[in-house]
Design a protein around this nucleic acid. Structure first.
Length: 677
DNA sequence: CATAGTATTCAGGCGAGGTA
DNA sequence: TACCTCGCCTGAATACTATG
């Protein structure tokens, strides 16, 4: 037990019984009602008007407000307070007595932990001038009880108040005139930036700097007057809580930052800058009292081609500018200088033809919302049917489960239903086919597969997403989901049981196919696992990292990319590169582009003729283990160098061959010759 | 216009959930 | 399990406003 509580027990203020009695199911409202009963004398709690209220911190004890104190100039709103009505003892009770009684009651009846929860009780009495003087938070009343923690809290507050003295954020427009540094003007001009405006001018506070908090609160007064967001951006923020926006940092380096919204859809919405704000703070050595300005501007204004026809406002960008001493600090950290003395002037296409490398990188890393929203709108414009799995639906589905894509699971959700259709088309999925989907996520691809007439078995590792997708397709009998890790599960037995149940239902399955958007980090493992399953699958269509896709499909002899996986791919399948898929189609956006690859699986009878696939791939792996070694050396554990040289001669290769010089057919022949030996 | 009560603002606290 | 990140909540400071 902590020392404070021991002391309180000695004083008879706290007992374990109290703690148990009030530790559960207690509410500040109950306490206040009971305290009011105590003060009022005879009343029971039920007789006291308790207005419905969520926030309990500002209860006003008002004596007989129905009559209304004669000198009360503004009528308090009932919902703000707990009102004790009509009792003589209260209405005529001197205010100091009310205070004392309240204090006495709470000390006697509630342990410290609970007392500290009703900190702010504003007390009004008939003598209002006295009441105002006496207007102190209850925490201050309690802090006079020699309770260490409360004294400490009080001291801390005094320190904070002293620190902030004189620099409290002004609520009016008493801000210095906007003054965008020349280098920012120039850069924004090069990006064809328009609608340049200062959103926020702010001295940094502890909460903006503290590493635990990782955020910059944007004063509401300043942001609400600027109207810097377009309606669809506001909607996205309200629905999903954040928006990724390209930011020019004080070193003119471009990065992305998340703009968050607190208290969405409530009267008091706040904008905050989130990740990677913490990194910006440390990179620029920002500290309390440093002054920063956040500017916003739009790029690609009226450029429907780039904006996907979504709107004419252009893509939102931010610029973070250091002001005053912060500039020096920032430049000291960087070792460069900057000036910020010019008058702010609007930047309007000062250099329309020029696009800096920064700006081009910006367009390649459009914030996900804009990139994907643009696509959706464009499709609608072409008159295509609206799809239930557009970006909005995908994000809504995630939001409905309170999910954010997990990096540990490599989750990147496809936002473009057209890509899902192309995946399905590549596998030529039709009526009666059986599809295996790995990682269905929100079910956007699943939906396309089912619509194409397939029975779908989905394997989902994330239990939340498995629940989501099973709820979504609860109506259909063509769908089954397994909460398993594909890499570890026995896919053969699952497929057998599914095929069995389909046959029992009287349906005839034509082909079994794999169609999946899999996490990039497990793609090679999945490929290795799937391709040898020509006995159950006819086609495997995967969305892979573009580099992986190219390596699997197009790696040629004598290149550093030529590896055992290429032998495996060609041994078991005929691979085909279908299309490239830009990274902007995913949420969250990965750092690489993707591509659709189709593997037409060979039937086991059509595999290259080797006596044993196990010994064949063992030999291939041994050969590539010593990639720079000649085969006669790296395979000498199988047979003698002379025999290997002879075998290579029979294959038509020089005796000094290295593994990257042999095709899959050459390896097959070599294996068969060595095995014969 | 002065006064005093109410409303608003926002820095800082802190707990919850996610991640390494 | 410790650390990170997020976002709601609290309360002091300040602005607003009704009244005489």
């Amino acid at each position: 037990m902590i020392r404070e509580e021991e002391e309180e027990q000695k004083m008879g203020l706290l007992s374990k019984k109290d703690s148990d009695e009030h530790g559960y199911g207690w509410s500040p409202l109950d306490t206040l009602a009971e305290a009011a009963c105590f003060i009022a004398g005879q009343k029971t709690k039920e007789e006291i008007l308790v207005p419905p209220k969520k926030r309990f911190s500002n209860f006003n004890f008002l004596n007989d407000m129905s009559a209304g104190p004669s000198n009360m100039s503004t009528t308090p709103k009932e919902e703000n307070g707990l009102i004790i009505r009509g009792e003589e003892e209260v209405s005529h009770c001197p205010i100091e007595q009310v205070t004392n009684l309240l204090e006495e009651y709470l000390i006697l009846n509630y342990p410290k932990k609970l007392r500290s929860s009703c900190k702010s009780i504003t007390i009004f009495g008939q003598n209002l001038s006295y009441a105002k003087k006496k207007r102190a938070s209850f925490s201050n009343m309690v802090s006079g009880l020699n309770v260490k923690k409360d004294i400490k809290m009080k001291k801390r507050r005094v320190v904070v108040a002293a620190k902030n003295k004189g620099k409290k954020v002004k609520f009016d427009n008493d801000l210095p005139p906007p003054n965008l540094p020349e280098e920012f003007k120039s850069l924004i001009g090069n990006m064809n930036g328009t609608n340049v405006q200062r959103l926020v001018h702010k001295s940094l506070f502890e909460s903006d700097i503290k590493s635990q908090q990782c955020r910059l609160l944007l004063p509401r007064q300043q942001t609400k007057s600027t109207n810097f967001l377009e309606p669809h951006e506001k909607n996205m923020l309200r629905n999903y809580g954040f928006l990724t926006v390209p930011l020019i940092d004080p070193k003119l380096k471009q990065q992305e930052i998340n703009l968050g919204l607190w208290n969405p859809n409530k009267a008091k919405e706040f904008y905050v800058l989130k990740s990677p704000w913490k990194r910006i703070v440390s990179e620029h050595g920002l500290d309390v009292d440093d002054v920063v300005e956040l500017w916003s501007f739009r790029v690609n204004h009226n450029n429907n081609e780039i904006n996907g026809g979504y709107d004419n406002g252009g893509q939102l960008h931010f610029a973070l500018v250091l002001v005053g001493d912060a500039i020096k600090k920032g430049s000291d950290k960087e070792g460069t200088t900057s000036s910020a003395n010019d008058e702010a002037t609007p930047v309007h296409n000062s250099n329309p033809g020029a696009r800096t490398p920064t700006s081009s990188s910006s367009s390649s890393s459009l914030c996900y919302i804009r990139a994907c929203a643009g696509k959706t709108k464009r499709r609608v414009g072409r008159g295509r049917r609206s799809n239930p799995d557009d970006n909005h639906a995908t994000l809504t589905a995630l939001n409905s489960k309170g999910r954010f894509p997990r990096k540990s699971l490599g989750q990147h959700y496809m936002l473009d239903s057209e890509i899902n259709e192309q995946l399905t088309a590549a596998a030529n999925v039709g009526e009666g086919d059986v599809g295996l989907e790995i990682g269905p996520g929100t079910g956007s691809l699943t939906n396309v597969l089912i619509s194409a007439g397939a029975f779908v078995l989905a394997i989902e590792k994330d239990p939340h997403m498995a629940t989501l997708v099973s709820e979504r397709f609860a109506e259909t009998e063509r769908f089954k989901v397994l909460k398993e890790d594909f890499v570890k599960c026995h896919i053969h037995s699952h497929m057998s049981s599914l095929l069995g149940s389909i046959e029992q239902s009287g349906a005839n399955s034509r082909y079994t196919k794999v169609v999946a958007n899999i996490p990039f980090n497990i793609s090679t493992n999945v490929v290795k696992q799937l391709l040898p399953m020509g006995d159950i699958f006819s086609d495997v269509v995967l969305l892979l990292q573009e580099e992986t896709a190219l390596r699997l499909v197009e790696s040629s002899l004598r290149t550093s990319e030529y590896r055992p996986i290429n032998i495996l791919v060609n041994f078991y399948s005929d691979p085909e590169f279908i299309i490239k898929v830009p990274r902007t189609n995913f949420f969250p956006q990965p750092n690489v582009d993707a591509a659709v690859v189709k593997f037409k699986l060979k039937q086991p009878a059509h595999y290259p003729p080797v006596s044993s696939t196990k010994s064949f791939f063992s030999m291939v792996n041994s050969a590539f283990n010593g990639k720079r070694k000649m085969l006669r050396r790296s395979l000498q554990h199988i047979c003698t160098p002379l025999e290997i040289e002879n075998a290579l001669g029979n294959v038509g290769r020089p005796s000094t061959s290295r593994p990257e010089e042999l095709s899959m057919d050459d390896f097959v022949k070599l294996h068969n010759l060595i095995v014969k030996v």
